[in-house]
Design a binder for these strands. Sequence first.
DNA 1: TATTGTTATACTCTATAACTATA
DNA 2: TATAGTTATAGAGTATAACAATA
Lengths: 150, 150
Amino acid sequence: MSEIRERALLEPLEKFLGYQLRRVSAACMAHLANALTAQNLSPTLGTVLLMIKANPGATQARIGRSLAMQRANIAPLIARLEHDGLIVRKVCDGRSFGLACTPKGEALGKRVRQIITDHEAELFRALTEDEQKQLLDLLIKMRGSVAAAS
Amino acid sequence: MSEIRERALLEPLEKFLGYQLRRVSAACMAHLANALTAQNLSPTLGTVLLMIKANPGATQARIGRSLAMQRANIAPLIARLEHDGLIVRKVCDGRSFGLACTPKGEALGKRVRQIITDHEAELFRALTEDEQKQLLDLLIKMRGSVAAAS
DNA sequence: TATTGTTATACTCTATAACTATA
DNA sequence: TATAGTTATAGAGTATAACAATA
């Protein structure tokens, strides 16, 4: 460890929302990824598992649309969750399946939710509860606008 | 286009800051990537270019630390910017180089900054100026806490 | 015709390890 | 010993195109 702290560089994008969003989100995802390693799940896989848990019977196309993921990208994730015995596919209409968690998937989903809750409590403790609520509301307000612009 | 809108799925992570951060950030980055395609730059390359423009003489190691990027990952980006004639490397201390923009890099940097400004104005127009300021302040407040937790 | 699931493929970003050269 | 830059490599996530089967 050098004891001399180097002078910080100027951040020309400091005042840009997109830049700060990216920096905070990236750090947050890295922290969550670390918290989920013991469950052998990435944040993405954990999110898909929780979506299936919350929406039993939904097809992977609908899950994908809801998470803004391509069908082509969600397919291997579903296969992985099924291979791990966390979800099952029930024939839906001949070309699609209704997804649902197995008991093992349900149990893991509960654990994942708790891990995310703990991870967020630690990561966001610098913000007051009011500030956390404010931030959440602003982000949710953004969601509609951002989706429309894409 | 089907005229029947499908029922929205439940979002079990709706109330989680990390989830909303990720969704908004991802959409924002996709939008910016699109806005930068004509300049043949990704958001990451554009950010590195602007960092060099704002901090002439800085080494790539310092740029990388400031952007939370590994030396190994920033090396090819620097090589690419140099190959494109956007930056130059001046010998610094025998094992490192001071980076600086060429006139071409300066000009492109200005254009990139304007593109980002326009992109953000469009994407964040759903928020009032006060809300944008609030969001920025909350994100910046997070930065310190998040960095400490990693 | 449109949708579902799948495969193949490529690209970006990231993470780690190892190496050389220099401080 | 620590740091700078580089290379190799692997992994996650995403994008597009194409295909067969079904609606």
